[in-house]
Amino acid sequence: MNSIILRVGTRYLCGLLVLFSLYMLIRGHNEPGGGFIGGLIGSTGFVLFALACGTADARNALKIMPQNIAMGGLGIALLAGIFAAFFGDALFTGQWLFINETPDDKGIPISTVLFFDIGVYLVVFGSILSIVFAMEEEI
């Protein structure tokens, strides 16, 4: 699109959206948000990038092929599920590690569930971008 304003604005907006999407992802377990919503928001950032500056720039900014991101996300989600096997639990049983745990406060939680959600994020992000980029390149 031939809009200077959009093109310039996009650079900042894209970063902002990705940042915001990560925020939605991390807080998703306790507040509205999560991998889906995060991934969707993150992808809109790059969709905007692609609309404004063309897919070539967007692909350069992304560095990795979106399909690989998506498939990698699927792998991460799967591994997060399989991880439970090391503890003798069933597939997709959440494994939690609480850093700085006190009796009152659970501290900072690190869990397979979070990794699963990250996988979801990457899948949604990568998938939408691979469709949109491919479509854009057909026009």
Binding site: G72, L78, G81
Partner: peptide, 14 residues
């Protein structure tokens, strides 16, 4: 049996 095909798919795709 459920997990294996997906694992295969990820590896085969990459």
């Amino acid at each position: 049996p459920l997990v294996l095909p997906f694992l295969t798919a990820v590896l085969a795709f990459l």
